[in-house]
Design a protein around this nucleic acid. Structure first.
Lengths: 118, 118
DNA sequence: CCGCTCCTTCGACGCCCGTCGTAGTATGAC
DNA sequence: GTCATACTACGACGGGCGTCGAAGGAGCGG
């Protein structure tokens, strides 16, 4: 059975209304995922999945990107064979006012402290 | 060996500087703990451990109170034999600006939706 | 001293989540 | 077509967290 195992190069980013607070908070409770958020926020532009500096394997990284996307934290889209990621900062603000902004700021500050500690 | 198993009726609430972002986010990622936050926020006054409306056993509730206290989310103090709980909303604001405020608001809104759904 | 209320500690258990390696699909370059 | 690159799906495994019941300490009222 050789059924297509991968989706065609298309991504469905959930609408804000579909995201729950539980999903969002679980998503940001993982340090690897917060690192993704911090890198996106400090970069200021889209980053491809492979260009992140993460301490886990590729397949684990894919898992984390899925969680972040399903929680509405990031938006993903293909650009050739590479998958680009961007923050959906303002999308969620209507649903959870001020929450994403505060989380992003804390993530950036957190990794900043780590950087200046070494 | 009959060593004292419980602490005397005294609680140590951690200083804000000791709390990590990881702790805080893990603390609020649990629905039972968010329910505690929401009940405290809507009540507007301290609530004893036993007076909460929670869907778990007493010992589990104790566990959740510990997590919340160690994350700096709530402050606890004894009043006779009962242990009172209050939100430390503003304490954490210096360390994670805007975060607790946004979380509390989302918690209240979340349980409000549950309430109006039935 | 006795009993009641409140909350805690302790061990146990089950499940979920993060992790990995392997195998596989889609796209682009030659 | 062939090869290389980029990411994904799958199955497995281990550890941690939420959950509970039972037993026990601390205070208060008699």
């Amino acid at each position: 059975m050789t059924r297509p195992k991968t989706t065609a190069r298309t991504v469905d980013n959930p609408s804000v209304a579909e995201v729950t607070l539980q999903q969002l908070l679980e998503a940001v409770a993982d340090p690897v995922r917060r690192s993704v958020i911090a890198q996106l926020a400090t970069a200021g532009h889209d980053i491809s999945c492979g260009a992140f500096d993460l301490s886990v394997s590729r397949s684990t990284a894919t898992h984390h990107f899925n969680v972040l996307r399903e929680a509405g934290v990031i938006r993903q889209h293909y650009q050739g064979t590479t998958k680009m990621n961007s923050l959906r900062s303002d999308d969620l603000d209507g649903r959870f006012p001020g929450l994403m902004r505060a989380i992003i700021e804390s993530c950036v500050r957190e990794t900043g402290q780590i950087a200046e500690a070494r």
